[in-house]
Amino acid sequence: MPHAVQLSLFVAALATLLSLPFAVLVAWWLERRSGRLRGLVQILVLLPLVLPPVVTGSLLLQLFAPRGALGGWLASIGLPVAFELTGAVVAAAVVGFPLFVLQLGQAFASIDPRLEEQACSLGLPPWRVFLRVSLPLAWPGLLAGATLAFARGLGEFGATIVLAGHVRGVTDTLPLAVHAALQTPGGEREVLVLCAWAVALAVLAALGFRALLARHRKRLEWGA
């Protein structure tokens, strides 16, 4: 497996895992709230979806640059972001986040709130109702969201190249490697290999998603 593919898989997986708890909380919060604050948070969450990734990357760079609001502090605790692999992870997480939240939000919205009310009236405090009723019922949405965020992370280019730069052997994820190979004379073969890997990964992700979803459906059908 080419190094760029390994790197991309690692970055996308880590970004998905790290954003998962936040996506769940934010999606849940958005679904059960109304009012101005909700609207504001919703716009903020959706921004990376509508902004050009390069713009998102530039904004992130402002925040995470060594002298940025967060970057300085993160660097001081040994976690520099800009022009590091962490930058690629942050970029992938941020651009994948809206997809994750949208999918989860739909899943939470489709749960009958009376089921949660019923669970609560059976004596479970709200956080246990969330873990035992809401989250299991939102499982397909969580899977779909994670798959989309992962796929988006795999393909992330614009924000990554701004925030993480193209540091050979450190931040050259699959799309960056393809971009570099395209500009290298005689790099056509490498481009083809990387493209084949990208297609294979996309198909695998889709198949994995389908398999997990089928398992969930079977569970609903037969009871567990």
Binding site: R114, C120, L122, P125, P126, P136, L137, W139, G223, A224
Partner: peptide, 20 residues
């Protein structure tokens, strides 16, 4: 709600669909 200790059986049985 969770501290009431009432058995509330509504018109709609509202069984948890993911549990047998």
């Amino acid at each position: 709600l969770h501290a009431r200790r009432v058995g509330w059986v509504r018109q709609d049985p509202l069984l948890f669909p993911h549990l047998n």
